[in-house]
Simulated scan of single mutants.
Amino acid sequence: MTIRAVMFDFSGTVFRLEQDESWLTHLKDANGDPLDVEAQTELMRRMTAPSGQVVQLTEEYQYAWENRDLDPALHRKIYLEVLRKSGLPQAEQAKALYDRMVDPGEWVPYPDTEAVLKGAAGRGVKVGVLSNIAFDIRPAFSARGFDAYVDEFVLSFEEGVIKPDPAIFRILLDRLGVAPEETLMIGDSEEADGGAKALGCAFALVDPLPTTERPDGLLTALRTHGVL
């Protein structure tokens, strides 16, 4: 069946939080020593992993982890704990890094993001963005004019439900006015984004590589499914 709508995940799919040396060079471990490159890279991986628990947690923090994308306060609480348990014990440094993470202006689009959004919209295909997230990502799009190509944003913290629950996919499908079998979901997590398959959507998996290493992953996904 012809694809009439495309739903995109956000992190690791159309945008990525890139490692910026200026954020990390001043960070110190418990001994007061600068974090090496390996430790810096692991910090960023843990802050942006689409699924899977990244550190061992107490019951209190386990609840926050499981509900982090439903409540901004829990999101902040758990990621400050993740940073602490990942070798960043100084609270002020952890808070500064966290604030960077939830600033949509710090996120970088993939090289083909604009082309796929504009291309799909230009062909009359409905475009939606569906994200498990605890902050408003719309400014990342509007700052670049990409919002002109997006029909609907569905964000977990606003809806009270997270992927892979079919309910959140249904919310976006209903707002776009399309049937699941006419819709393609693109994301970087088989576990979370692949939940769309339970409703009958097509699914394309992209690798959440650094933006310089994935120039055309989105274009390939849309071309494979006959959207472009």
Rank of each mutant, 00 (worst) to 15 (best):
L74N: 02
M47Q: 02
L27P: 10
T224P: 08
I168T: 05
D193W: 13
K28N: 02
T224V: 11
V178G: 04
L80Q: 05
S11L: 10
V154W: 06
E59K: 06
E81Y: 00
Q53V: 04
G87V: 02
L205I: 04
F169T: 13
N67S: 01
T224E: 15
G226L: 11
N132K: 14
L43Q: 10
F141Y: 10
T224D: 15
V54C: 12
R45Y: 10
G87Y: 03
D174C: 09
K163R: 02
A91G: 00
V102I: 15
Q56R: 03
D165Y: 02
A140E: 05
V127M: 13
P210H: 01
E106C: 13
F157S: 01
L70F: 03
S11F: 06
I137E: 06
A179K: 15
L35K: 13
S189I: 05
A192G: 02
D136L: 03
L209H: 02
D29F: 06
G128D: 09
G200W: 07
E66I: 00
T211W: 01
R76G: 03
A204E: 14
A143D: 08
Q56I: 02
F203C: 08
P72Y: 01
L24I: 03
D165C: 04
F8W: 13
F8Y: 09
R175K: 15
R175H: 07
N31G: 13
Y110C: 11
E18P: 12
L205T: 03
K77Q: 14
A73Y: 01
L218N: 11
A134L: 09
A202I: 05
K118E: 12
A96E: 06
I133H: 06
S131Y: 14
S142C: 00
A91I: 01
K85M: 12
G122E: 09
F169G: 12
V206R: 09
L88I: 01
L205D: 04
G105D: 12
D103E: 13
L173A: 10
P111H: 01
F169S: 12
L117M: 06
T41E: 14
V37F: 08
M47N: 07
R214N: 15
V127D: 14
N31H: 08
D151R: 05
T212E: 15
G119M: 07
R175N: 11
G119K: 04
F157Q: 00
I186Y: 05
W107R: 05
D9F: 02
P104Y: 01
D71S: 07
D216M: 03
R123H: 05
L205P: 10
R223W: 12
S51I: 01
L43Y: 06
A91D: 05
A73E: 14
A167P: 14
L172F: 02
P166Y: 05
T41K: 13
P215S: 00
K163T: 03
D29P: 09
E18S: 09
L155V: 03
P139L: 03
V108K: 02
V227P: 13
S131P: 15
P89H: 02
